[in-house]
Design a protein around this nucleic acid. Sequence first.
DNA 1: CTGTGCTTGTGAATGTGAACACAAGCACTG
DNA 2: CAGTGCTTGTGTTCACATTCACAAGCACAG
Lengths: 189, 189
Amino acid sequence: MYLRAISFLQQQAREYVSSQDLADQLHLKSPQIRKDFSYFGAFGVKGTGYHVDTLIGRIRDILKLSSIQKAALIGAGRLGKALALYPGFGMYGFEIVEIFDSSPQKIGKKIGNTKIKSINDLGDMEEQGIRLAILAVPSEAAQEVADRLVESGIRGILNMAPCYITVPKRVRVQTIDIAMELGILPYYV
Amino acid sequence: MYLRAISFLQQQAREYVSSQDLADQLHLKSPQIRKDFSYFGAFGVKGTGYHVDTLIGRIRDILKLSSIQKAALIGAGRLGKALALYPGFGMYGFEIVEIFDSSPQKIGKKIGNTKIKSINDLGDMEEQGIRLAILAVPSEAAQEVADRLVESGIRGILNMAPCYITVPKRVRVQTIDIAMELGILPYYV
DNA sequence: CTGTGCTTGTGAATGTGAACACAAGCACTG
DNA sequence: CAGTGCTTGTGTTCACATTCACAAGCACAG
Ligand SMILES: NC(=O)c1ccc[n+]([C@@H]2O[C@H](COP(=O)([O-])OP(=O)(O)OC[C@H]3O[C@@H](n4cnc5c(N)ncnc54)[C@H](O)[C@@H]3O)[C@@H](O)[C@H]2O)c1
Ligand SMILES: NC(=O)c1ccc[n+]([C@@H]2O[C@H](COP(=O)([O-])OP(=O)(O)OC[C@H]3O[C@@H](n4cnc5c(N)ncnc54)[C@H](O)[C@@H]3O)[C@@H](O)[C@H]2O)c1
């Protein structure tokens, strides 16, 4: 969240930012931000604020986003297609290098410059340096595909299906349930 | 989250569920679940668990998801198209009744059964009983469109653009930044 | 109708994160 | 070089959420 906000400031050629500025932008309190940054090691300048470039570098290092991270996309349906063509992953240094699907109609076709391969040709992801996967298959297939991904050496899964998937401890899953997020709104409205 | 998990059990014709069962499924501790449900008012049966149908009804009531909620979609791009055709909103009682875009190439075309209208014909959402909007426009346009939505009487916005938008206090915003969620993974991997 | 086995509901203890308040420090001015 | 204005870093306080532990209660069996 900080990385996104501060990258935005970088684009505007801002050199320094104060905790108060960030707090206003992110709708947080300024001590919160100073405490967080202090855990990274102190590098703010009293009276001036934090050096934007330094801050971005530090956060990227901590999040291990300094080097390009390869990712595989599973499921070339409506959502999968949108994700495959989404340029926003680039900002965090992600690159979708493989797309897999199970549908014979889709295998062999291309999305952008990437050819859709059969899920049966998943192979060894670890060997290819692909540690992340984006899962955009129907809920019913999510667990089965996750199992295959784990077997192939994937270490992190971004799950777009509205269901829990079970994986070994060494694998990290992050689930986004878009409908659920929308479901939060009526309560407050 | 509870609603999703328990709806799943309902589909499997499960009649009762214990806090322990749910805890295992959601990777939580069972007292957490009992505490949460106790805030809703006690209605579990000792020795048996919670009645699935009653629980779902209660949670839907609290979240104001008992009646159908109309929603407008803004932005008929790649993501917008996927969202417009996504059946998963139905589970929470949502229905996308209007689609708006600014591109002359898209206005007038249909996605599913819904015609894409011009953003200039937004009109009065409140009058039409539309209180929610899904925002799937480029980041640069997000704030401007949000302002127009607020003006038209929208009360809740699901923002898919990777940026903060500022709205009056009476309006609630929920932002999903898909790339950011993926950005969390490398740290743990 | 009594005993056994679960499961709930909740007071108390624990853990954790946010907010406050302020000393310390840098920059810039005259 | 002293004075002024901002901003950081952090010890302390506070608030809240999670977890524990256990009495109370229901179902079902014999
Ligand atoms: N469409 C949306 O806007 C949206 C929004 C939120 C969540 N989702 C979720 O994302 C997932 C995909 O949604 P969608 O709308 O793209 O669905 P879709 O039906 O358009 O696409 C699913 C794709 O997955 C492929 N697939 C099915 N089983 C597979 C398997 N075992 N291995 C590999 N590929 C397989 C299908 O061939 C298809 O191409 C679903 O779980 C859905 O709930 C979608
Ligand atoms: N594509 C994805 O998978 C993906 C993933 C995560 C987030 N997002 C975000 O979702 C948003 C949309 O992404 P996309 O890939 O669909 O982009 P897109 O360029 O394909 O579509 C954007 C649509 O918005 C319309 N638009 C532009 N300005 C508008 C305005 N002022 N009023 C109404 N409509 C307007 C455009 O005509 C276009 O149809 C972006 O903010 C993007 O960052 C997309």
